[in-house]
Amino acid sequence: MRIRYIQYFAFLFILFLAASSCNRNPKEPAKPVVYKGLYSFGPEIKSFKDCDNSQEFWVTDSSAMLELQYSQMNFEKPYEPVYVEVEGVKIKSGKEGLGSEYDSTLIVKKVVKITKEIPQDMCN
């Protein structure tokens, strides 16, 4: 009888582990994608405009490099757009906060390229 209880609890434990390992965060895809577009930064706006479809996103810089490299370009005024290629993931924006007016948020994981020169053939 005691062995049955041990088997029962072992089965429940294994079932719990299996269920919890399948519980990924559905808001954030596992693999980052390269996005190419225009990034603007200032006191109230951190936005990205995708060159492929002109969709705009709020930006969260988890790499801690995008905002740093942008500020090192020494613009005289904020919100000057720059061309960027970044690895990141898109998630649905929250309902509150600065990015709430955007449908989606781009979480930047890595900066591939940042330049003041905006390619006219890609981003009009």
Rank of each mutant, 00 (worst) to 15 (best):
110 K>V: 10
98 L>H: 12
89 V>T: 15
22 C>V: 15
61 D>Y: 00
98 L>K: 14
64 A>W: 11
38 L>N: 09
110 K>G: 09
87 E>F: 08
12 L>S: 13
117 E>N: 11
28 E>C: 13
62 S>E: 14
4 R>E: 14
16 F>H: 09
117 E>S: 11
103 D>N: 08
4 R>I: 13
47 S>W: 03
2 R>V: 07
10 A>V: 08
63 S>K: 04
15 L>A: 13
119 P>I: 11
56 E>D: 09
55 Q>F: 08
15 L>H: 04
120 Q>C: 12
94 G>K: 11
61 D>W: 00
101 E>L: 15
103 D>Q: 08
9 F>W: 14
70 Y>D: 03
64 A>E: 13
81 P>W: 06
110 K>C: 11
102 Y>P: 02
43 P>C: 13
65 M>E: 13
63 S>G: 02
108 V>C: 07
15 L>Y: 10
12 L>Q: 11
43 P>F: 04
8 Y>K: 12
76 E>H: 10
105 T>Y: 00
81 P>A: 10
1 M>R: 13
64 A>P: 07
55 Q>K: 11
66 L>C: 06
10 A>N: 10
97 G>N: 08
58 W>D: 01
50 D>E: 06
123 C>D: 14
19 A>F: 13
76 E>R: 10
67 E>M: 04
38 L>W: 05
118 I>V: 12
95 K>T: 06
99 G>P: 03
62 S>V: 14
62 S>Q: 14
5 Y>L: 15
99 G>V: 03
79 Y>T: 06
88 G>T: 06
75 F>C: 09
57 F>V: 03
41 F>Q: 01
83 Y>S: 08
36 K>T: 06
66 L>G: 01
93 S>Y: 03
62 S>C: 14
1 M>S: 14
66 L>I: 04
90 K>N: 06
114 I>W: 04
31 K>Q: 09
92 K>F: 01
121 D>M: 08
31 K>V: 09
90 K>I: 10
23 N>Q: 15
8 Y>A: 11
85 E>D: 02
34 V>Y: 01
18 A>C: 12
119 P>A: 12
30 A>N: 11
62 S>K: 12
16 F>L: 14
112 V>S: 06
102 Y>I: 07
24 R>D: 14
104 S>N: 06
53 N>V: 07
100 S>G: 04
39 Y>T: 07
83 Y>T: 07
95 K>F: 01
47 S>G: 08
51 C>G: 02
78 P>F: 04
112 V>F: 10
29 P>F: 00
115 T>I: 13
94 G>Y: 02
58 W>G: 00
52 D>P: 03
2 R>Y: 14
43 P>D: 10
84 V>L: 08
16 F>S: 13
97 G>S: 04
122 M>Q: 13
97 G>H: 04
44 E>H: 15
57 F>G: 00
92 K>L: 03
93 S>Q: 03
124 N>F: 14
102 Y>K: 11
71 S>A: 12
118 I>A: 11
53 N>F: 06
18 A>K: 10
66 L>H: 04
34 V>W: 02
90 K>L: 09
41 F>I: 02
40 S>D: 01
61 D>T: 01
29 P>R: 00
94 G>M: 05
41 F>L: 08
99 G>C: 05
21 S>L: 15
73 M>F: 11
85 E>Q: 09
59 V>R: 00
99 G>I: 03
34 V>G: 00
18 A>D: 09
120 Q>T: 15
46 K>E: 12
53 N>M: 05
114 I>Q: 03
69 Q>E: 12
104 S>K: 07
37 G>L: 05
117 E>W: 05
10 A>D: 09
